[in-house]
Design a protein around this nucleic acid. Structure first.
Length: 250
DNA sequence: AAGCAAGGCAACCGCAGAAGT
DNA sequence: CACTTCTGCGGTTGCCTTGCT
């Protein structure tokens, strides 16, 4: 049904999840033409995806220097600290976490902070448990949704601030591997083994990808030429961040 | 075993700014 | 200088997986 429609609407761009074949194609063309001109790459690769979509896929998933796996406690700590300092500047925060993307960090923050916020909410307002939220606002009324969303956002932010400060007050930093730095969740502490991430590193994946590479495509060297510095911090930005740090007395 | 809810994450969207013409 | 195109960012959505009842 969908395929039929695709045939009918010839120029329609492909959307949704990427297939392995598409990934290979994109990686190949990105290596060939560089990590720029995504519209051009999208066209010549015949992927029938938008340049934007290609770029997103590359940056968030295919780039060789990306880490794939759970956040380490150090990374979590860093995210909390940087978020308390910079707010939702995900790309900026991501630059401080080599191998992590803004999207990944954003997702991480949202899911974990929301969870945390919900816990906070429960523990701080026991009285609310006795009355249903619907008591305050009739079902379907706008104010309820808005107020709840606002409260949730504030709770998330507060959770972050608290975690961040507890993180700092414990004197935790890059050396805090495996430290019992907060009780956010026992599971968080169990992530402390980078080697255990899925049992494999991206290097492994890269090798596998290379071996599975179509014979018509050159393999290993392309990775070398395209690993260039997605995560290298721009010097100017770096300077600015230093200034920020100084201003915050860190 | 089936149904449902929540969690996790990939992907998309809209906008703003930079770069090119 | 104005306009167009491209890139990057942050917010949001929707699908898949996992855990619970």
């Amino acid at each position: 049904m969908c395929a039929r429609r695709m045939v009918m609407v010839k120029e329609e761009m492909r959307r949704g999840p990427w297939t392995e074949q598409e990934d290979l194609q994109l990686a190949w063309f990105a290596a060939l033409f560089g990590e720029r001109r995504w519209d051009f790459i999208a066209k010549v690769s015949g992927l029938n995806r938008t340049g934007k979509s290609c770029r997103m896929r590359w940056v968030n998933y295919l780039h060789p220097s990306l880490k794939h796996g759970r956040m380490t406690p150090q990374e979590e700590c860093l995210i909390l600290e940087l978020h308390s300092r910079w707010g939702n500047r995900w790309s900026r925060i991501a630059r401080k976490l080599p191998g992590r993307t803004d999207n990944e960090i954003k997702n991480y923050w949202r899911t974990h902070m929301r969870k945390r916020a919900q816990e906070e909410k429960r523990s701080f307002s026991p009285s609310r448990t006795t009355t249903s939220p619907a008591d305050d606002f009739p079902i379907g009324s706008e104010p309820r949704a808005e107020a709840e969303a606002e409260a949730e956002a504030e709770a998330e932010a507060e959770a972050g601030r608290q975690l961040s400060s507890s993180c700092m007050s414990l004197g935790l930093d890059e050396d805090s591997q495996g430290a019992d730095w907060c009780s956010m969740d026992q599971a968080w502490n169990e992530m402390a083994m980078p080697e255990a991430i899925d049992g494999r590193s991206f290097e492994d994946c890269r090798e596998n990808t290379t071996t599975a590479w179509p014979s018509s495509m050159p393999s290993p060297p392309m990775w070398e030429c395209c690993t260039a510095s997605l995560w290298k911090t721009d010097e100017e930005e770096e300077e600015e961040e230093e200034l920020d740090s100084a201003a915050f007395g860190l």
